[in-house]
Amino acid sequence: MSTTVSTEKPGTSSSAAGRAGDSVFSGLSLAAGILILVVLAAVAMFLFLQAVPTFTAAPGDVTGGKGFFAYIWPLVVGTLIAALIALLIATPVGILVALYISHYAPARVAKPVGYVIDLLAAIPSVIYGAWGATVLAPALVPLYTWLTGYLGFIPFFGGPASQTGKTMLTAGVVLAIMILPIITSMSREIFTQTPKLHEEAALALGATRWEMIRMSVLPFARPGIISSIMLALGRALGETMAVALVLSTGPLIPSLIKSGNQTIAAEIALNFPEAYGLRMSELIAAGLVLFLITLVVNMIARAIIARYKEFSGAN
């Protein structure tokens, strides 16, 4: 009602212009929203259509000669192992660094540390790869020799250890360093947003600083921590260059300190330039599988966050 009135009144042209602006802006934001869906659908379509020849090809024609499934599952397992190693290292370290910056460090220390962590995110992955292959890998060789000497009975540390250090564990460590800033900066952001009220509630009950963090900061930040881990996992799953440079690839083996294993992203990058025909289709099918994995990871993350909604403090 009020809108029709204002159009009839003279001298309200500014509000009429405001309405035109409104419709322009809502149109733009709608278009942006649709664009995202179109791009997503187009990518999925492309992956699927290009991958179809692989699924219909005779098993003998696929790389390895035993069909697509036999070809892809070692890569899937390799991808998951690399990402898992990275998460196992980066999650505790990232959360501790974030807590240090947000709740322990004096302001003049916290700021620089925060900047340095953010700087880690700005380093291109090819540089991480080069550093991992030339510096980190040789440096880890003594550790691997030690691991296989004392813990060799565990399949993960089965020997003989690689003498170049270009192993799955090295790749995982490099990935961990790469995803550390994602976890740290997102967690830090959410830690500092913890309501003062909740922190004071804990302190006033006689909580120590650690107990206060456990009672108010971590529960408040849990959905944020989970999202940061999932975001980091997405990066680790899809990371190509660092793994391609660091890992000396080979068939799937349980040992993490021998040459061997491969991830989907690195497999695609290393073979794509020379691929044509069915081989190209195989690699795109591998990409489709990677796409599905990250999709599932994201849906699991959303499910976890939704489960705690009632207790989230948002109400």
Binding site: H198, A201, S216, P219, F220, Y308, F311, S312
Partner: peptide
């Protein structure tokens, strides 16, 4: 405190 502050996650 001034504003009620039960722990929301508990």
């Amino acid at each position: 405190f001034q504003r009620p502050n039960p722990f929301p996650t508990m």
